[in-house]
Design a protein around this nucleic acid. Structure first.
Lengths: 217, 217
DNA sequence: AAGATTATTTTTGAATTCATAATTCCAGGA
DNA sequence: TCCTGGAATTATGAATTCAAAAATAATCTT
């Protein structure tokens, strides 16, 4: 089941541009300067433009006729919609993971869970959010559904740039942690229905949304 | 909220190749001959190759290093995974549509429903499947979630080539129709929770899957 | 004549070129 | 000074070119 190493030039370029967008090096709404990036990456315009077509399809940039590409703005509306879909996909992943998760995957998620707890206890929010994210990704992987995993990863990519900026209130935070406890329980019991239900109602994204309420566009 | 007319050359080419794959003009596993297609479309290799990159990302073709593109085979596993995700997305769409559907959209879906019923009564399966598909699409649209709609459409595209080939047994068929009755009821009542539940368990894809059990790779 | 080996052709990946559209810059006029 | 209009510049979209890899054809050896 190893993936064929897809080491294409345009793929590399796409990845680098994705990172630049996520890091804010390329600001939302700004034009994507082909020439500059070509020089920076040491490639010609051909592979760069191929990458832009793919990125446009992914929703990272938008193509304006005869005016090249602009970095797409992530509106509050789009963000909300994306979280809605991701949460639903996580719920499905939970259901499937209950039936399909391997012992190794479960062990790994448990380890992440304890890591997350310790970050919660020490009040380290950014580390907490990072591990939290890893747990959700691990559950999606445990679904063993390649299509689900692909779609989820793509959506996750898109919202990467606003993730980890949230400021959680203590109330929300403690409730989210307790929901995670239930999730682990359900996973141990291989109870997909329960896990799916928890994830369908899990407030992670809602919390982040509210934290991002006034943010960008 | 009008969409910017994205009439790019590579987009046109991509669409035409998608259709050729859906119709079987380009057979699964076969190579995609750049030169031939360029002549056929009257474009140079540049936009064609850009289209191929996008199609590869969508899962229609796979890129082999120094060996161009091959039409991706749709394995039974991938098909099952795709249906699993689509069904989950439809369920979410149902929940949202319950809250957000407009009067015009409801009227349209009702009309499609009666059309579908008449095809069922006259035993016209291919027409039935077509309208059935339109109803599911309309429900997804009624979710008013652009991200959901995009993801769904993309997945729908991918399985297009195996859709409408199914042979439904009478038992399955009548049950599917009765589920559709409940869906319409729930929609009229704007009861998203119920609609979502029905769609989550709706056996449309399961039926098609079983019909496709022995089919292509 | 069959199989291996080399030469030729074809195809691919990427850079370059070219025509056209958009942007910038600058002069002239209100 | 601020706006307008047009030339000069730059960027984009797409075709073409070029080098390298793969596929095919042809030759040689046994």
């Amino acid at each position: 089941m190893d993936k064929i190493r897809q080491n294409t030039l345009h793929g590399e370029v796409a990845e680098r541009i994705r990172n630049m967008i996520a890091q804010g090096t390329l600001a939302p709404g700004s034009r994507v300067p082909e020439k500059t990036l070509c020089e920076q990456f040491g490639v010609s315009r051909t592979p760069l433009r191929e990458a832009l077509k793919v990125l446009a399809h992914e929703g990272f940039v938008e193509l304006l006729p005869n005016r090249g590409a602009r970095v797409a703005k992530l509106t509050k509306e789009t963000l909300k919609n994306t979280f809605e879909v991701m949460q639903s996909l996580e719920a499905l992943a939970g259901e499937l993971a209950g039936q399909r998760i391997t012992g190794a995957e479960l062990t790994n998620i448990e380890a992440l869970h304890y890591q997350m707890l310790s970050h919660y206890k020490s009040g380290n929010m950014s580390e907490y959010l990072l591990v939290n994210q890893q747990i959700h990704e691990a559950i999606v992987m445990a679904s063993q559904n390649e299509v689900l995993i692909d779609v989820y990863k793509n959506l996750n990519h898109r919202v990467r740039r606003v993730r980890f900026t949230a400021e959680l209130s203590n109330d929300y935070w403690s409730q989210a942690v307790s929901e995670h406890e239930s999730m682990i329980e359900a996973l141990r019991a291989r109870d997909g229905a329960t896990l799916g239900g928890i994830l369908r109602r899990h407030l992670r994204n809602k919390v982040e949304m509210s934290a991002l309420e006034e943010m960008a566009e």
